[in-house]
Design a protein around this nucleic acid. Structure first.
Length: 273
DNA sequence: GTGACCACCTGGCCGC
DNA sequence: TGCGGCCAGGTGGTCA
């Protein structure tokens, strides 16, 4: 389940392999992956475009091409693999990009949740999906004042707001649980009730945890791997996520799991009051 | 504007 | 062993 650190790891891996290579052709086996434009236009427009740079905004991967940008969201289980033409297409490979050096970049997604957009390069930050997103964790505009403004009318739990990509981008369920644990904030606390000090902590630990996770290659949880055959290491540093019935590393109280807005939320009832 | 809920998907796991 | 049902979860859409 790729969150910002995992997407950043994928981006760095792809960058080394793809920059200055040309996409000769795209073959789509599962059309629902392509959100825009329509299939025929997508295939026509991406033809013979050179990949100049790999970028990322939140959980979106951005392939910067000559005239367009390919936006790719991995959602739950999306992965990119390099194959050759000789390799048979597996049942979970839904989009194949033929490259100018004989390799194929294949998008693999067991659950078919991932989505791609091909947009005019100059438009990507002005139209959905990127135009609707909030700030990157390291953006200087991410301040206590910004969060206060965003959360002032929010009566929903802070855990839910941390997952809201229109506020801060890149945080998913795993890191939201870890951030709130480090901040000693209950995931159930109403978002508009957080003090300035607590918001400051949220910013501090969001940056700290995501930075550390990137350095460790992200987390390998369930079926997600940053690259083929490569495991992220950050799951070894998780304190509460997936640790139900284990002892809190701070106080020894049993970690609890409860559902908040349908998402599994792990927390220490003693440290996170 | 806000919040709750559902659909999208499939593999893995659990209980019967 | 086989089957059914639940769970995992990011996002967009719909509805109140």
């Amino acid at each position: 389940m790729p969150e910002l650190p995992e997407v950043e790891t994928v981006k760095r891996g792809l960058e080394k392999e793809l920059v200055n290579h040309k996409v000769l052709k795209a073959v789509i086996y599962y059309p629902n992956i392509i959100s825009a434009p329509i299939l025929s236009e997508f295939q026509q427009q991406i033809k013979n475009q050179t990949i100049h740079k790999m970028n990322r905004y939140g959980k979106w991967l951005i392939f910067e091409l000559d005239d367009y940008a390919l936006l790719s969201h991995l959602r739950m289980e999306g992965k990119y693999f390099f194959r050759t033409k000789k390799d048979p297409i597996s049942k979970h490979e839904h989009v194949v990009f033929e490259l100018d050096d004989g390799r194929e970049l294949r998008y693999h997604d067991t659950r078919k949740f991932g989505r791609m957009y091909l947009l005019k390069k100059e438009d990507i930050y002005h139209v959905p999906p990127l135009s609707k997103l909030g700030l990157e964790p390291w953006d200087n505009l991410l301040t206590v004042k910004y969060l206060k403004e965003k959360l002032k009318n929010k009566t929903i739990p802070i855990k839910t707001c941390l997952l809201d990509q229109s506020i801060i981008v890149g945080i998913g369920n795993i890191y939201a649980n870890e951030i709130l644990f480090m901040c000693h904030i209950s995931p159930f606390k109403k978002s508009n009730k957080l003090t300035a000090k607590e918001l400051e902590k949220v910013i501090e630990y969001t940056r700290k945890i995501l930075k550390e996770a990137i350095e460790m290659g992200g987390s390998t949880i369930r079926s997600y791997h940053p690259r083929e055959g490569v495991d992220g290491l950050f799951q070894q540093r998780l304190f509460v996520h997936g640790k139900e019935h284990e002892k809190c590393p701070n106080c020894g109280t049993m970690i609890q799991k409860k559902f908040i807005n349908g998402r599994s939320s792990y927390y220490c009832p003693c440290c996170q009051k």
